[in-house]
Design a binder for these strands. Structure first.
Lengths: 335, 335
DNA sequence: CTGTTAGCGCCTTCAA
DNA sequence: TTGAAGGCGCTAACAG
């Protein structure tokens, strides 16, 4: 049962290969009877068009490249789930690129993506910088391959379609909430300054803090649990008596902090109120259960793929910058 | 700067396109000087061979299909990370298929995979059944596309190369450990009976229990936290006073159980010892910290991809069934 | 509505 | 060591 080609089908159905091609791609252009006959033969032979020949001839691949930083982050994984669901609707296949310490030169990787003939690119990388943004822009303009940023924002430019939530506003809201609880020493637990999205959260936090005339406290640590555990221990030793509110840029960071705080005898939320970001399983599995910003990450994936498909089809996209609504989930780490 | 073709390179370098093709695929067959010249032009033009044309002409795609059940499970995501790292070494691209409630007919999806011209298939699906296994076998035999099962085992047949750990033995070991602690009423918390891997864990649990002359208690629930929380509540209400040991098939299930047990006033590990499976972030973030079986999931991904590459290259694989070593991690939920 | 005919960009004998 | 030429399987005008 070696693979049947369009040629085999044509012969067996007594038509030319053009007709076979048509019944597959423009069925309305072929007479119903012949169409049915061809379809019948296709079924008998188990014929599936060779994706490569098709892509070469049509200069379209019905595949999109999806570029992510690291699968193990649950926000990334969930988003990919959403993308996959939507891509399936259009019969698009997904070519996956995982950035994680593998591509010294990201520009080169982009070239690879272009060579892969993907019809479009879904880019998710919260470490995006100017060079990468420019490269993406270049690919879109020069090569005509549409790019959509998913859960990734680059605040200094807005020529690329992006789907995200309003992280600035979300951070502002939760910080405000802590202030309204009467918290005076609110810390933001964040990562090294290279994650754009986290910069946005910091800005939102800052706005709320300044409005209330409080003092800003930005504490940078790692996403790695063993590392941030040590950092939090030190932080709590030095400032343990001061901190009464925390906004963490990720759920897992929030939970890790809570664990250390409790170990140091602090009561959550009596002594310290804590907010996380994302609403992952960590949030519901932690004790006390974590209050957090709920990010519709699957929807972000779905919408990003949806918009990419529109761009691939040459349709006009009304809004370059798409913000999905977020939710504040109050559980047990806040009052 | 539209895409450069091999033809452009040939002209600019003053050679034929055959020579360009050779310097890329069989560099040793071209004189160093011309090779360098060609390479130089390639660089200048930013030329990347069109993957589709290449695939069509060579009947190889340098891409592998990777089939997974659901990205949001952290074991799956981690494994994909491992696969990506290894695939990068061979310059293979990854075509991702997510099964999650999307393919009514999996056989049809396999056809899609074949049509995609993937050189090989990495299959991960712990719900694998006879039909799926047969389809995979057929694809490997009829179409000559190698298949490797990653972290999924099908105990009733062994014609497909598989990479996993010895789940049976691991479950046996942790159950034994609980028995050695003096536990008498050890429950296994597992899922609906469709996950092969979990069947293996049950068997290992059973062996240890029977050896010790104890009573088996298999409790089936869902992986969904809100669902299993309810189940665990009922379980603890009915048997709360009996249970003194637990082996859960996933970390998240273990943590969810622990949370409910503590809420019911049970002390962990004094009253109940608990083991999880996988060693995910959930295990280190939970309080008390979860003891569990550490599964080298990234290595499984790496090795699966490694073996697949060997098969693609037509190399002989000594061992069809590859078991990587696991570890028992003792933390705070066991004595 | 259907068939003929060029390619799509690259690899790979076969000669030179 | 190199070039010429014929496909790989399919799409897309262009005729008919």
């Amino acid at each position: 049962m070696s693979k049947a080609t369009i040629y085999n089908v044509a012969i067996k159905a007594g038509v030319s290969l053009a007709t076979v091609s048509r019944t597959l791609n423009n069925p309305e252009k072929v007479k119903p009877e012949t169409r049915d006959r061809v379809l019948q033969v296709i079924k008998e032979l188990g014929y599936k068009p060779n994706a490569y020949a098709k892509g070469l001839a049509s200069r379209k691949s019905t595949s999109v490249a999806i570029i992510v930083p690291d699968m193990s982050r649950s926000s990334v994984a969930e988003m990919v789930n959403g993308i996959a669901v939507e891509a399936k609707k259009y019969d698009y296949s997904l070519i996956l690129y995982v950035l994680k310490d593998k591509y010294a030169d990201e520009t080169e990787m982009m070239q690879e993506v272009v060579a892969s003939q993907a019809d479009g690119i879904l880019y998710m990388n919260d470490e995006i910088n100017e060079e990468q943004y420019k490269t993406l822009n270049m690919i879109q303009d020069e090569y005509g391959v549409p790019v959509v940023l998913a859960n990734t924002v680059y605040p200094y430019d807005s020529s690329l379609t992006t789907v995200s939530i309003d992280y600035y506003q979300a951070a502002y809201e939760v910080t405000k909430q802590l202030i309204d609880e009467g918290r005076k020493n609110i810390f933001m637990l964040t990562t090294a300054r290279k994650y754009m999205v986290n910069d946005l959260k910091e800005a939102g936090y800052q706005k709320a803090i300044e409005e209330a005339g409080l003092e800003m406290n930005i504490f940078r640590t790692s996403g790695d649990i063993t590392v941030n555990t040590i950092h939090f221990n030190e932080l709590l030793k030095e400032n343990g008596h001061l901190i009464d509110g925390v906004v963490a840029v990720r759920d897992s960071i929030a939970v890790s902090f809570i664990n250390q705080a409790i170990e140091k005898g602090r009561k959550i939320p009596e002594d310290i109120s804590v907010f996380g970001f994302q609403n992952t399983k960590y949030a519901s599995l932690s004790r006390p259960k974590l209050s957090c910003v709920d990010i519709p990450i699957i929807d972000i994936g779905v919408k990003a793929m949806y918009l990419l498909k529109k761009e691939i089809d040459g349709l006009h996209i009304e809004e370059k910058f798409n913000e999905l609504p977020h939710n504040i989930i109050l559980r047990q780490t806040t009052k």
